[in-house]
Amino acid sequence: MSLIELKSVSKIYPLGNQQVVAVANLSLKIKAGEFTVLAGPSGSGKTTLLNLIGCLDQPSEGEVWLDGHNVGKEEAKQLAKLRLNKIGFIFQSYNLIPVLTAAENAEFTLMLLGIDKVKRRQRIVELFAELGLQGLEDRNPSDLSGGQQQRVAIARAMAAQPAVILADEPTASLDLQTSEDLLALMQRLNETQGVTFVFSSHDPLVISHARRVVSLRDGCLESDR
């Protein structure tokens, strides 16, 4: 069974007096353990699709299924729960909480889950070691480089061991070398720990690392290979 399944999904936004079709009648299945890139130029509906999968948004038409839950039918409260339990997010601009240290940012979701402090620290130590962030635990986000911040964001996304990690243009703010390192890291996590990744990107480097590339154009599926 697929972890993620989209059945003829459309998403229409009002924009002034007009209606913008961000995603049009799109169907897609993603299985657990996949490493998928949603490729396409900006405005092709990548972010909307990620938001739909990530339970941040609900479809105008069609169904979005996440691990057996119909996202379109859930209440806001239930959606938050799904995000907490099933999904990890990584953003283009890292979006760490500036007043929290690196470790506190990473354990934020664990805190939301109500896991006690000792266990949380244990998990963060493990994760930071895995992600090459040792020694940076007590730094503030503003004292970290872009690559380090994005790795902390990955740690935050992975901390609660979600079913899938969604990454919206994760390398767009990073230089080439750092992007390369980061992708390698994510690929390794995918291979060794079986973490499911869904990316959005228009960066050929990212696309080259992916095992499955779903191309989008104007909200429609262009190719899937």
């Binding site: 990530g54 941040l56 806001a76 409260k77 938050a80 729960k81 995000r83 907490l84 339990n85 999904i87 990890g88 997010f89 953003f91 979006n95 909480i97 500036p98 934020f108 979701t109 939301l112 935050r156 996304a157 609660a160």
Partner: peptide, 16 residues
């Protein structure tokens, strides 16, 4: 505004 969006995205409920 945006930061609250992020906190919601990583799984916090509106109540939080």
């Amino acid at each position: 505004f945006k930061e609250f969006g992020v906190i919601l995205a990583v799984g916090a409920s509106a109540l939080r």
